[in-house]
């Protein structure tokens, strides 16, 4: 630890998995998805990323399960599913 708990290498959140306290996770139905990218744009944590196939997926290591993507999706393609025992 640095003096005063200063972090001298800022922007290091991507090195730490921060989504372990989520209670619900987004599940995408590709049949319904229109690939509009609104979920990617609106995710407050930058946890949704574009994939090579043109769809979008949530990185569950960082997704906090807020449900904004499900709420914003105009096609109703994202459902929030309760986390269970792994």
């Amino acid at each position: 630890m640095h003096i005063g708990n200063i972090i001298t290498d800022p922007g290091n959140a991507s090195f730490r998995r921060t989504g372990d306290w989520r209670t619900e996770k987004p599940v995408l139905d590709k049949e319904m998805c229109v690939r509009c990218a609104l979920c990617w744009i609106d995710c407050p944590d930058g946890a949704i990323r574009p994939c090579d196939d043109g769809y979008y997926e949530a990185d569950l290591h960082y997704c906090k399960g807020c449900g904004i993507c499900a709420r914003i999706c105009p096609a109703g393609a994202i459902l929030m599913e309760e986390e269970g025992e792994q």
Binding site: H2, I3, G4, I6, I7, T8, D9, P10, G11
Partner: peptide
Amino acid sequence: PYPLDPDRPMTH
């Protein structure tokens, strides 16, 4: 030793 400085960003 660790002044806030836009050229040398860090988290306080």
